[in-house]
Simulated scan of single mutants.
Amino acid sequence: MSSLAEVILKRIRCLPEGSLLSARHLLHLGNRGAVNQAFSRLAKDEHLLRVARGLYVAPVATRFGKRSPATERVIRSLAVTTHEVIVASGARSANALGLTRQMPVREIFLTSGQSRILRLGKAEIVIKHAPKWQMALGASYAGQAVRALAWLGPNHARRAAVKLKKLLPASEWRALQSAKPILPAWMAELI
């Protein structure tokens, strides 16, 4: 293994689980082509996982072998790297808030940035661009409530809104009410 690849491995081993690394972070070590080639070889040898074009993450070593890092950690790292808001989808939010028992099969997240697909081993993570009103309250409980209500739709949201009123802390409910001007009319009416 070349010294550039060893330096990349040392660097990524020092980072927390799920931290993303790209060639642009390491251009001080060599020219772009050499750094890209080192990343490519490390991914081919399974020392790194290629998450998306130009983005890599280290697999987690366990006593049973290597596994992909936790999805939430990779998503958090991507949000920090790209300076975007990335949150759970409406289906996942509705499940987390106890509004449905359905567990989403696909891992879908919403973002204020561009849509993309990440691959963690054999898992596919879909990141979809969402309208500003769904992202306005971020990852808070109030933000989860907005996305859950949007996912449920106007026909099923009335019962969910009643349940949310009891479930959410008063401060989160007030945050939800303060967002009424940017929400769709049917949702603002429910809140």
Rank of each mutant, 00 (worst) to 15 (best):
I108M: 12
R159P: 10
A130C: 03
V35M: 09
S2E: 03
R101Y: 06
L42H: 03
S93V: 11
L168C: 00
R11G: 06
S2A: 08
L149F: 05
K66E: 15
E189F: 00
I86R: 01
M103Y: 11
Q102E: 10
S178K: 14
P184T: 02
W151T: 08
I127C: 03
P169C: 08
R116L: 06
A34M: 13
F39H: 08
L137C: 12
P169V: 03
E107F: 14
T62K: 02
K128Q: 12
W151M: 07
G143K: 08
A34I: 06
P131H: 04
R147L: 01
A58P: 05
A161C: 13
P181C: 11
A157G: 07
R24T: 15
L97Q: 05
T100D: 14
A142P: 07
A130M: 03
H28A: 14
A38C: 04
S68F: 07
T62W: 06
L21F: 04
L97W: 02
A145H: 02
P169N: 11
L164G: 01
H129T: 00
W173A: 15
C14G: 14
E84C: 15
H28Y: 15
L190G: 00
M187G: 00
S3F: 08
G153P: 05
H47L: 10
Q177C: 15
A5Y: 09
A150R: 09
E6Q: 13
V126L: 03
A61R: 08
D45K: 10
N95Q: 14
G98H: 15
T71D: 12
A150N: 10
K122L: 00
V146W: 04
Q102P: 03
L164D: 06
M135Q: 01
G153V: 03
A160C: 14
A175N: 07
R76D: 12
G113Q: 11
L110F: 02
L183V: 12
A185M: 09
S112M: 05
L137R: 09
G30Y: 01
L190T: 08
S93W: 02
R63G: 10
K180D: 01
S68V: 10
G33W: 13
V85E: 06
V105L: 12
I108D: 06
P184W: 09
E72P: 09
K180L: 04
T82V: 12
S3M: 07
Q144Y: 09
A79Q: 01
A23E: 13
K122S: 11
H156F: 14
V7Q: 13
V146G: 05
L164I: 02
R67E: 00
R24S: 15
T62M: 03
T81S: 15
L99N: 01
V80H: 11
R76P: 07
V60M: 01
S93K: 00
L78K: 08
W173M: 15
E124M: 12
V51R: 09
T111C: 06
V162I: 15
